[in-house]
């Protein structure tokens, strides 16, 4: 009898996780104060120089990826589209496994995670899970403001 109850609970849990994943994936949140890690300087600047890259003229999209990540491929395509649509947007892809120090410093838990940096390289929006093109466009528009 217990097994049936556990089965029912597992089905309910599956629905809850599925809806939560749909709601959370790709949603950009503002990184006003809480998103800035303690080890970073007060302005919350993401050190693109350490990756040998410079900020884009209007915004930079940083994608954390890993080999074990199917949605990363879709996200890569979405970011490339946005970079084509919006002038001055640079895309930087970070291999999370090769840059675990950045992963830890910036509290990245999943791949893909996308950061939107403003023209000065400051982190202003972030999302985990694959975002849609419209979600990225909206986040970039907010970053440019």
């Amino acid at each position: 009898m217990t097994g049936w109850w556990v089965l029912a609970a597992a089905l309910v849990a599956t629905f809850l996780v599925a809806f939560a994943a749909r709601a959370v994936n790709g949603r950009f949140r503002s990184t006003g104060s809480d998103g800035v890690p303690a080890t970073e300087d007060a302005e919350g600047r993401f050190d693109l120089g350490a990756l040998g890259r410079r900020p884009g003229e209007t915004a930079t999209l940083v994608q954390f990826s890993s080999a074990f990540c199917q949605p990363c491929r879709a996200t890569r395509a979405v970011l490339a589209q946005v970079a084509e649509l919006v002038p001055g947007v640079e895309v930087v892809e970070v291999d999370a496994e090769a840059h675990l120090e950045l992963v830890r410093e910036w509290g990245v838990l999943r791949t893909p995670t996308v950061f939107v940096l403003d023209s000065s390289g400051r982190l202003v929006r972030r999302a985990s899970g694959a975002p849609s093109r419209d979600q990225v466009l909206a986040a970039v528009a907010e970053a440019i403001e």
């Binding site: 849990a13 999370a96 675990l100």
Partner: peptide, 27 residues
């Protein structure tokens, strides 16, 4: 039950919980 939830999520919406764990285990 945990394994069942993971398998159902993968089958139903293509979400791979085991894959999501990968980066955390590396960290």
């Amino acid at each position: 039950a945990a394994a069942l939830v993971a398998a159902l999520l993968n089958a139903a919406i293509g979400l791979c919980l085991g894959c999501e764990l990968y980066l955390i285990t590396r960290r």
